[in-house]
Amino acid sequence: MSLDDFLLAFFSLDILREAWPILWLGLQQTLLLSVIVVPLGLVGGTVLALLSTVHHPLVRWPLMAWVDFFRALPPLVLLIFIYAGLPFAGLEVSALGAVAIGFFLNTGAYYGEVLRAGIESVPRGQMEAARSTGLSRAQALAYVILPQAVRNVLPDLISNTLEVVKLTSIASVVALPELLFQARQAQSVTYNATPIMAAAVIYFLLLWPVVRLLSRLENRQLAGRQ
């Protein structure tokens, strides 16, 4: 195969021009989806992390089982189970609904672990000092502990968010028209690999700054440890 053939198959400008409206819709869906599922996961994770501050065995063990269960189950399995399984139980869910539920359960567990580590990194004295100034337990958690916890695990939180945005590509499997799904559609219409290549380039341009930022944050964290 000549170089021209290769360029024509993967980097054809004509195909790109033709596929662009479809890809653009997909990109918008991917961004919209990220804006929905990241906050959902953060809310779920915050609840799990706050629950982990309760040391009662009746909270502790079910919580640990919950988190480990959803960390053990691959997100795609969870998504397929919700999307293809629940209708058999008489519960019809839309693709978006299935993605939202699946991501809430899966990424919530991951965010929960990150935030729990953050809360545990805040010295006990902070809670005691906050309580002794007259703050309630909830106030102390919200105004004193959580802000410090979040700052301590910021690189992990950003890293997890990057993974969540990348993970939205599995929504293509349940026919949600996000970027990868649209690219596959365009590819099967044009019989050309350019749309998928274009989708990959878009993902890279979108997420590369985040990867760079993370790399720097991680190095700084490591330097701080020495």
């Binding site: 990348k166 293509s172 690219a183 998928i196 990959a200 993902y203």
Partner: peptide, 9 residues
């Protein structure tokens, strides 16, 4: 930066 499913596709 690339989602694994995109690389597989």
């Amino acid at each position: 930066a690339l989602p694994p499913l995109v690389i597989i596709a």
